[in-house]
Simulated assay, not measured.
Amino acid sequence: MRNTVFRKLMANEFGQVRAEMVARDHVLSALGGRTPDQALEAGQPPKEVWLAVCEAFDVPEHRR
């Protein structure tokens, strides 16, 4: 998964504004106490970040 796909999935799930807020501000223990943006900047694969967000926000399996 590319970063652009990650951003598109986030926007589709949360709406553009909320997706940006979640990526920038929401700290996830599954990402080592980092936000999604910080995890991506640190080199964590976008698919892993997406799945961590899905777990944290109970995104249904069919949309993961």
Rank of each mutant, 00 (worst) to 15 (best):
V27C: 06
V17A: 15
A52M: 07
K47G: 05
H26D: 12
N12Y: 09
K47P: 05
L40M: 03
L40C: 00
A23P: 02
G43Y: 02
L51A: 08
G15R: 09
E41V: 07
A52L: 05
P46Y: 02
A52C: 06
V53H: 07
R63V: 02
M1K: 15
M10G: 03
F14A: 00
Q38Y: 01
V59Q: 10
R24F: 10
A42W: 09
M21W: 14
A52I: 06
T35D: 01
A52Y: 06
Q38M: 05
L51K: 10
P45C: 15
P60M: 13
A56G: 10
V22W: 00
L31A: 14
V17W: 11
V22N: 01
V22E: 00
V5C: 07
A42R: 12
A30H: 03
V17Y: 11
S29R: 06
A39F: 03
V59K: 11
G43F: 03
H62S: 08
R24K: 14
P60I: 14
L31N: 13
M1V: 15
E20T: 14
V49C: 05
P46H: 04
R24E: 14
A52K: 02
F57T: 12
V27K: 13
Q16N: 10
G33E: 03
Q44E: 12
R24Q: 11
E61P: 02
E20Q: 15
V53C: 12
R2N: 08
D25P: 01
G32T: 08
G15A: 07
V17H: 11
E20Y: 14
G15I: 06
A42I: 13
E55R: 08
L31C: 15
A19E: 00
L9K: 15
S29V: 07
A11W: 00
L28R: 00
R24W: 12
L40V: 01
M21E: 15
F57D: 08
R34W: 05
P60A: 15
L31F: 14
Q38A: 09
V53M: 08
A56W: 06
K8C: 10
V17L: 15
G43P: 00
A30C: 08
G43L: 03
G33L: 04
F57C: 04
Q38W: 04
A23N: 05
R34P: 03
R24T: 13
A42C: 12
R18V: 11
L51T: 09
Q16E: 13
L51P: 07
A42N: 09
E20L: 15
A42M: 10
L28T: 01
D58L: 06
R2M: 02
C54G: 03
Q16R: 12
S29L: 08
V59I: 15
A52E: 02
P60K: 10
F6T: 00
V49E: 00
K8E: 10
S29I: 05
D25N: 07
G15V: 09
Q38L: 05
P46C: 02
D37M: 09
K47F: 10
L9G: 07
V49Q: 00
